[in-house]
Simulated assay, not measured.
Amino acid sequence: MTPFAGKTYWLVGASHGLGREIARQLADQEARLILSARSEDALRKLAQELCNAIVLPLDVTDTDAVAQAARTAGPLDGVIYNAGVYEPMRTQNWDSGAVLKMSDVNFTGALRVLGEVVPGFVRQRRGDITLVGSLAGYRGLPASIGYGASKAALVSLAETMRHDLKDSGVTVRLVNPGFIKTRLTYKNSFRMPQLMDPEDAARHVIAAMRSRRFRTDFPRPFSFAINALNLLPDWIVYRGK
């Protein structure tokens, strides 16, 4: 018997990459899964591989659709918000449409989903919330207009919820990966330190869900290097710029 056996998790952002591997590993541990993303075909293909998985296509930018999906999902033991979009972009190349889309999916979409789920968790005094952020949310980085800001907002949201929901019976955790081999990182033209396979990254997420920690950053030592930037004064970080 695993900690996930027989429990129902709504995995938002399940169709590809990290989300798909999280689904596979939770299914291996006998969890019941509700799989959501925009790509219905990819979700159905994944569900055919798994036991106890149902497909619930969803665009997290559609408020009414999120509310309907939450009603369809029914009672939950946990929710995992992994939906995300990414476009590498420097400030000089600002594309408002792309920036707003990143914000709407990566952060505002989480607000929509949580707004439907959290009140029920609070009332029943139990529930498990996992927010998948990014190490890019810890410090403003080059060519991260839109993406970095949306992930920083998600980090702040998780920290606030952790304060407010202490002793409520509702668990909140934040998982911040580094670079993962997905359709998103294929867009990068720079070297990505400690680039991880989705399977390895999913194992970190599942381990975090088993633990009592609020925050899990990985991989090491790359996560240490990113966090160390916050300890440096701005004149060093932006030297020569």
Results as ranks from 00 to 15, higher is better:
118 V>H: 01
67 A>E: 05
239 R>Y: 08
107 F>V: 05
152 A>R: 11
32 R>P: 08
160 T>K: 14
184 L>D: 07
212 R>L: 14
11 L>T: 02
24 R>D: 10
164 D>T: 12
113 V>D: 03
109 G>R: 02
13 G>P: 08
229 L>F: 09
29 Q>H: 10
27 A>V: 06
36 S>P: 05
194 Q>W: 06
39 S>G: 06
187 K>G: 01
82 N>G: 06
142 P>R: 02
47 A>I: 13
23 A>F: 04
108 T>D: 03
21 E>F: 04
233 P>R: 07
185 T>D: 09
230 N>A: 13
213 R>Y: 09
144 S>W: 00
68 Q>E: 15
166 K>W: 10
49 E>I: 03
33 L>T: 04
198 P>T: 08
3 P>Q: 14
83 A>G: 03
196 M>E: 06
112 R>E: 10
111 L>G: 08
78 G>L: 06
191 R>C: 11
164 D>C: 09
18 L>C: 13
171 T>D: 04
199 E>G: 11
75 P>H: 13
67 A>N: 07
236 I>N: 01
163 H>R: 15
152 A>K: 07
129 I>M: 08
238 Y>D: 15
92 Q>Y: 00
24 R>Y: 07
54 I>G: 12
84 G>F: 05
159 E>D: 10
201 A>V: 08
107 F>E: 10
181 K>E: 14
27 A>T: 02
103 S>N: 12
125 R>C: 12
174 L>C: 01
146 G>I: 00
124 Q>R: 15
235 W>H: 09
240 G>L: 05
193 P>A: 12
167 D>L: 11
239 R>N: 10
144 S>P: 00
193 P>S: 09
175 V>E: 07
20 R>L: 12
138 Y>K: 03
238 Y>P: 00
113 V>E: 04
191 R>W: 05
172 V>E: 04
102 M>H: 01
25 Q>C: 02
79 V>S: 07
146 G>C: 00
68 Q>S: 15
218 F>G: 04
235 W>P: 02
29 Q>Y: 11
120 G>R: 14
33 L>R: 02
10 W>P: 14
106 N>E: 03
220 R>L: 14
166 K>M: 13
16 H>M: 04
98 A>M: 00
99 V>P: 01
157 L>S: 04
123 R>V: 12
177 P>C: 06
157 L>F: 06
214 F>W: 03
119 P>A: 12
192 M>T: 09
187 K>T: 02
227 N>I: 04
225 A>Q: 07
138 Y>D: 02
167 D>S: 14
153 A>S: 10
52 N>L: 15
216 T>C: 14
179 F>N: 08
99 V>D: 01
83 A>S: 12
133 G>E: 09
204 H>P: 03
76 L>H: 11
127 G>K: 03
104 D>L: 01
70 A>N: 05
54 I>K: 15
93 N>E: 14
117 V>P: 08
29 Q>F: 06
188 N>D: 15
20 R>M: 06
71 R>N: 14
60 V>F: 00
156 S>W: 05
81 Y>K: 09
119 P>D: 08
213 R>H: 14
60 V>G: 01
